[in-house]
Write a protein that binds this DNA or RNA. Structure first.
Lengths: 178, 178
DNA sequence: CCGTTAGTTCAGTAATTTCTGAAACATCAG
DNA sequence: CTGATGTTTCAGAAATTACTGAACTAACGG
């Protein structure tokens, strides 16, 4: 990211986001492209991305493929320009929703299945080991359910969870829920 | 993980967990050690871990250091044995809590600060760019707040969030919360 | 003291992941 | 068709990350 088509702030943002990505198992370039598309007011094409991020064209191609595979980036065409242009939703909640959905599908659900299989196959194990496998499975199942519930929430519904009342009051056992 | 001190199920579990770790930016060995300590009924020492996971002693030493740094593993001493032994909480919620707390502290909070700084420095940017930076910042601040709230919840409080009522009813704007 | 056991550190190596450049493919205009 | 433009693929190179083995520190028992 050397070419200075980007403002100082934007560059900081994109850099930081790439850094963040790597910490969560996301390729730096992939994360940077996504950050750039988020902050950009209009769709960018592959050459824009090459210039802004200073990586090889082929890298952009692969990374974009990855991002579209994650349903995070969509291909658009601008009138009178036959190059592919790319966008990502500018609504943060929507992005969150998509990421949660995909990570659940790709990583969480298979693990849940695997845990389930382990519990089934745990006949010879000690009672305590079985208990722990079951607990972990149950925990993950709860998280999975929450993820699914989050998916159907409207944008910005998150606000309802924070504040003086917040999660705390919600989760404390008071009404006989569930 | 070749030496067969482990049952089939345990081996599957540890392997899968290591795999999962790598996808979320956690070193495979670190994740495997943690999995093994979780599933193990009693504290294990470094040699146990070497045997079970078939990695170098030095690797165990480093990984354990990492895990204790994350407050996920604690050192215990068994009477009459001067070797270090290690444990991790067997309560899943507790583990979740600790991981959330640490990842927030190490990755989330600094990002939040960085975003804040960017917003402050975004004078020259277009109104839309400023809006997006602010939105992302606000979103992350909400998540951060939720993480903090989760920390003070009792074990297993998670159950309150799932089920027929669940997150959905909680988040839908109905009572004038926050 | 000295030998033994336990734990740590770190330079070098191995493995993995990421990135590039060249070639192939595709589409369009003339 | 042919040339121009845009995109994808993939083998190998580069960079990063993980792991090992050897050397070191520490603490204890006799």
């Amino acid at each position: 990211m050397t070419k200075d088509r980007l403002s100082k702030t934007t560059r900081t943002f994109v850099t930081h986001w790439g850094e963040m990505g790597t910490r969560w198992g996301i390729n730096r370039t992939v994360a940077q492209i996504h950050a750039l598309l988020y902050i950009s007011e209009k769709p960018l094409n592959a050459d824009d991305l090459v210039e802004c991020l200073d990586v090889a064209r082929s890298n952009i191609s692969m990374s974009i493929k990855e991002l579209t595979g994650w349903s995070l980036v969509t291909l658009v065409h601008l009138p009178g320009d036959r190059r592919d242009h790319f966008t990502t939703p500018s609504d943060v909640w929507e992005l969150f929703r998509v990421i949660i959905t995909e990570r659940k599908r790709r990583e969480f659900d298979p693990t849940l299945q695997a845990m389930s299989a382990m519990v089934s196959a745990s006949a010879g194990e000690s009672a305590e080991v079985v208990r722990r496998l079951k607990e972990l499975h149950a925990f993950m199942a709860s998280i999975a359910e929450i993820m699914d519930q989050l998916k159907v929430l409207p944008p910005s519904a998150l606000a309802g969870l924070v504040g003086a009342a917040g999660v705390f009051s919600t989760l404390m056992p008071k009404r006989g829920s569930s």
